[in-house]
């Protein structure tokens, strides 16, 4: 009781969940309401209900809805996997980028650019991303299956990230035209603009399956609070736990990067921010981080459309611009708390 600052702030789970759900829903609606092409809502909805293909209905369904849905899906993926990886590694600095999957997904997409497949059909880009994420996941899973420790998995992720980064740089280096280079660089910055329902349908199954895998680790992550040995003595199989968390993360992050590019800091900052509100319990952190990740991403994506800059700011740039200084502030507070 004498340390209310650390524990007294915990909110009842139902209250926290409803607050975050409300916020996410509100920002989703806002994301639908904002856009460059103006729409008349009455017309759009009447057309939709009647099954007519009016211009307003098209703008809503083909432009705004995919963008809002992807914001929701990608944000939830980043928040959820960030929380799961921090719990798995018992490290508040872990994030989806750490395990190397997002780097590999980016490399896969860049390869699609580089070899010209992206010019042939539009889904080559996300498909390339999924292939990249899949390869990185296969490496991580092989290691996890052989009983590699969590530290070994992090180091493998760091190595995969460096390799993916180097190969991406190589692709830029050897890129045949400055136009292609520019295209790659812009794509790497991360954005939800100009995506279609095809992108949504491509990413959705991976994100749903990944979410189910990650959410099933909640109790195991709680047990890991006391270290791997104690978690095992409580009846949790560590190889299985690592497998579920890593495979789920790879599916969600791979699919997210494949359709949106790399969007940083959401997975790092969101769990960090919410942890005191759930009494520092890693299992309880999962679902709320998914909601808050979705809210943050939708909010940031609304922001990039409100800022009057042309060309539009890239979402990944904005999340990093907001996230990095904010994270520094958090770390400073963390530093003084432990002193």
């Amino acid at each position: 009781m004498n340390d209310g600052a650390a524990t007294g702030a915990a909110l009842p789970q139902p209250l926290l969940m409803s607050l975050l759900s409300g916020l996410t829903l509100g920002l989703f609606a806002l994301s639908l309401a904002i856009g460059y092409a103006p729409i008349h809502w009455n017309l759009a909805i009447n057309d939709l209900l009647a099954g007519r293909e009016g211009l307003d209905a098209l703008v809503l369904v083909q432009l705004r809805l995919p963008r809002a849905l992807l914001g929701l899906m990608v944000g939830a993926s980043l928040g959820l996997t960030g929380a799961a990886l921090q719990g798995l590694m018992r490290n508040p600095l872990a994030d989806p980028g750490v395990v190397g999957v997002s780097g590999a997904a980016a490399l896969g997409a860049v390869s699609a650019f580089y070899f010209g497949a992206a010019a042939l059909f539009s889904l080559a880009l996300p498909l390339g991303g999924l292939v990249g994420a899949g390869l990185a996941t296969a490496v991580l899973l092989a290691l996890a299956r052989r009983g590699a420790s969590t530290t070994a998995l992090i180091l493998a992720g760091v190595a995969l990230n460096s390799l993916a980064g180097a190969l991406t740089a190589l692709a830029l280096n050897l890129s045949p035209s400055p136009y292609a280079t520019l295209e790659i660089v812009f794509w790497l910055m991360g954005s939800l603009a100009d995506r279609s329902l095809q992108h949504v349908m491509l990413a959705l199954p991976f994100i749903l399956v990944g979410a189910a895998l990650v959410l099933s680790t909640a109790r195991g992550l709680d047990a890991l609070t006391l270290g791997e040995e104690t978690a095992e003595s409580l009846g949790f199989s560590l190889p299985r736990l690592r497998l579920l968390a890593i495979a789920g993360t790879a599916a969600m992050v791979g699919a997210s990067v494949a359709v949106s590019g790399t969007i940083g800091f959401v997975g790092l900052v969101v769990p960090h921010l919410l942890r005191p509100l759930v009494g520092h319990r890693p299992g309880r952190l999962l679902l709320v981080s998914a909601l808050a990740g979705a809210a943050l991403t939708l909010g940031a994506d609304v922001l990039v459309r409100l800022i009057p800059s042309r060309p539009e700011l890239k979402l990944g740039v904005v999340t990093a611009l907001i996230g990095a200084p904010f994270f520094l502030l958090l770390l400073r507070r963390l530093g003084t708390e432990t002193d």
Binding site: T7, R219, T225, L226, G227, E229, S233, F236, H280, R281
Partner: peptide
């Protein structure tokens, strides 16, 4: 099993730490 290295990785409230024994 009570391990030798008594680390509690997250600053959970004490009663939640004890409740982990019920997992």
């Amino acid at each position: 099993y009570l391990a030798q290295s008594g680390r509690i990785h997250w600053p959970m409230p004490v009663e939640h730490v004890v409740a982990l024994g019920r997992l």
